[in-house]
Nucleic acid binder design. Structure first.
Length: 467
RNA sequence: GCUCCCUUCGUCUAGUGGCCUAGGACACCGCCCUCUCAAGGCGGGAACACGAGUUCGAGUCUCGUAGGGAGCACCA
């Protein structure tokens, strides 16, 4: 039997980090085993589901490259099917109508809590066989086995056993005529031929009752793998308080999709001491059975390190389109300055995100906005600054080819002819090019300004050197 | 309250009874390199939650304790 996994988000918000990892693991497991990855939208909660959220999830997945093979399927389009299956259960005596009001159920619940036992439905209508009648409170309940236990081998948690006495007769159809989650998932997973149910471990508690429904329906029970949670840096549940929660926020913050994928795949899973995984490697090495049981914390520092790793090692040409996107986000027009690829090469050892890179690239796409007085004082108003700037200007103007290596040659010549150390030469030029004391290597900084730009900035600096 | 789950450096993790005086990575600290800032190289501090037991031997197995989490809905 070929493997089929599914990612089944409910469209009540953006794709968050936890969901993205679940989707990644589902996708990876399907890829490694030559299976199929299905996307299903669980939108039976009409109150909270929105079309925008569906789009946000789709956008997030596509930015990460997690493409589904089938779907998206929408639960709201499958209502007839759920009804049909419920009717079948009713006909077979495996489900029944019940008529308690929500208040009555609530009372049952609080009484049970007060008595120190687990709250559960008392089964009043279970064996009554009352004929179906119209009632605003009419729901359909599943007749859960009352004895024995449910045992399953969770691929990450291991063997889990659950006594049926802990389970009650859950509602599978609400009084408003909609199926409940626990029922709809089972019907869907059966119909869609899902063989591996990979989801967050907040669902372990639902699994035993779902397994009972599978059995009542005479369907094969799939394999289950429950993923531990991803916590915030403080060990608390991930929330808006921790900054970026939406996957797309990470794009805005300047992360590469591959870096996020690499970070996520290692969060709860490992392959020996390996830290860096190409997507191809993930596809062959990832195994859901190797996932850890314990929750893990989200660490932005490590993600940043990975991001810089890819910034440094990926082909700049591949990064360029994403970088240009960030330049535009920062209000910079990539067409009126140096080639973005050249900027990437100059800055990738110095920043951790594309957002930072775009910010620092600004000096080559627009005039210097602000001159640091300290920089002028320290490096322009010196005995040698003017001589350095003048000589550099002459030599740069005469340069045959404008490239970093040639510019570097000029800087070295200036140092030699004036008998100065590199520090004395680079510093005033750096201030001239950037207005600050910090920049990439001096040859790149000059090169990226372009010949005209560089000469113009030296003139400006000369004025300030005198003033 | 009840049921289930989890527990190795600050963080992510390796570890499946002897190879562990517990390894790697991020972060941190120091040194080197150096035109600034980085990057890079080298080095350092830093963990088996606790207690019993099984065993010749336990981070690894069992039980208990503590701490954390999830669920107990006509929400997914």
């Amino acid at each position: 039997m070929t493997v089929r996994t599914r990612f089944a988000p409910s469209p009540t918000g953006y794709l968050h980090i936890g969901g993205a990892r679940t989707a990644l693991y589902c996708w990876l497991e399907a890829r490694r085993r030559g299976g199929t990855f299905v996307l299903r939208i669980e939108d039976t909660d009409r109150e909270r589901s929105t079309q925008e959220a569906v789009q946000a999830i789709l956008d997030g997945m596509s930015w990460l490259g997690l493409v589904h093979d089938e779907g998206p399927f929408y639960q709201t389009l499958r209502m007839d099917r759920y009804r049909e299956v419920a009717e079948q259960l009713l006909a077979e005596g495996k489900a029944y109508y019940a008529y308690e009001s929500k208040d009555e159920i609530e009372t049952m619940r609080s009484e049970a809590m007060a008595a120190g036992v687990k709250p559960r439905y008392n089964g009043y209508y279970r064996e009554r066989n009352e004929p179906k009648r119209d009632d605003p409170n009419r729901v359909i309940r599943f007749k859960n086995p009352s004895t024995g236990s449910v045992v399953f081998e969770d691929k990450v948690k291991g063997r889990i056993e659950w006594s049926n006495e802990e389970l009650d007769d859950l509602v599978i159809f609400r009084s408003d005529g909609f199926p409940t989650y626990n029922f709809a998932v089972v019907v869907d997973d059966i119909d869609m031929g899902i063989t591996e149910v990979i989801r967050g471990d907040d669902h372990v508690n639902n699994t035993p009752r779902q397994i009972n429904i599978y059995k009542a329906l005479g369907a094969a029970v799939p394999e289950f793998a429950h993923l531990p949670m991803i916590l915030g840096p403080d060990g608390q549940k991930l929330s808006k308080r921790h900054g970026a929660v939406s996957v797309m926020q990470y794009r805005d913050d300047g992360f590469l999709p591959h870096a996020l994928l690499n970070y996520l795949v290692r969060l709860g899973w490992s392959h020996g001491d390996q830290e860096i995984f190409s997507v191809e490697e993930m596809k062959t090495l990832f195994d859901i059975a190797d996932v850890n049981k314990a929750a893990s914390r989200f660490d932005i520092a490590k993600l940043s390190w990975l991001n810089q790793h890819y910034l440094k090692h990926d082909d700049p040409l591949e990064i360029a389109p994403e970088f240009e996107w960030h330049l535009r986000q920062a209000g910079i027009d990539p067409d009126i300055g140096p080639a973005p690829v050249d900027v990437i090469v100059a800055l990738r050892d110095r920043v951790q995100t594309l957002k930072e890179m775009a910010e620092r690239a600004r000096i080559w796409y627009a005039p210097i906005a602000e001159w640091d007085p300290k920089a002028i004082e320290k490096h322009l108003k010196t005995d040698t600054a003017a001589a350095v700037l003048n000589l550099a200007k002459t030599k740069l103007a005469a340069l045959a080819d404008w490239n970093p290596a040639a510019v570097h040659g000029v800087v070295e010549q200036v140092a030699a002819e004036l008998e100065l150390g590199m520090g004395k030469v680079a510093a005033p030029l750096r201030v001239a090019m950037t207005g600050t004391q910090v920049s990439p290597s001096i040859e790149h900084t000059i090169y990226l300004a372009g010949r005209e730009g560089a000469l113009g900035r030296i003139d400006e600096a000369l004025v300030r050197a005198q003033g």
